[in-house]
Amino acid sequence: MQRLRLVAPLFGLALIVSGCATLPPESDPEARAEFFERNDPIEPLNRAVFAFNEAFDHLLFRPAAEAYRIFVPRPIRTGIGNVLDNLLVPRTAANQLLQGRPDDAAQSVVRFIINSTLGVFGIFDVASDMGIEPRFEDFGQTLAVWAGTTKGGPFLMLPILGPSTLRDTFALPFDVALDPWTWVGQGDQVRALRVGRTATQAVDAREQFIEAGDALRAQSLDFYAALRSIYLQRRERDIRNEGAPQVRRFFDER
């Protein structure tokens, strides 16, 4: 037992060391510049985690998303998605406040009140029709605003959760704390609701990514590298709030 306690951290250290990407020699400055620009120092370990995530996605996640699409009709999925989006609005408002944008935070509060009442617990996105469009903020973006840079440090591939950076990973627990629903209610039922919400959120997000994900995988020469690049570019856009707001539709327009 004593020996195991000694071996475990050593093993962990060995794993980290073997999971490090090698820095190109100084004789090749361009390769070095590329290495720092890529900023993925534990790439081999990240790729191993990615392989696990891919298997998880293939066996469980994507089938669940497909079943969701097959068994739950589109208008109901949209309603569920709207409820989930609405639940995220208080957290967004808190982060907008922390980013020093009280006007946007006020808009979010108004949006939340309108959709929770007129929109029947958020099922109908009435606020978007009134011109208050959906915005999403998380603590990772807030940290980026505070730091004044879109660069979030070394790239990390988290088990199950997927692509991230050191900064965004550090921000995750704060987002849980900033979400008011973390602090409301207690007991097994509330806990079950919370788990259900997270699971539905994951399946909902995956369902929307089915076609795009398949197309990306089919086109990619290196799926991991493509996802890494896309994640970093999208985070940059989200930090700068340059994305077009996405409103869910109940039916196809045609």
């Binding site: 990619s220 020469l221 290196d222 590298a225 493509a226 570019q233 999208r234 856009r237 994305g243």
Partner: peptide
Amino acid sequence: EGTSLRITQRSEYSAVIQRGGG
């Protein structure tokens, strides 16, 4: 969706070359 095709493709191609020993 905020993703540039040429930037994504460039990082992908450079990863393929890097993993192929340069």
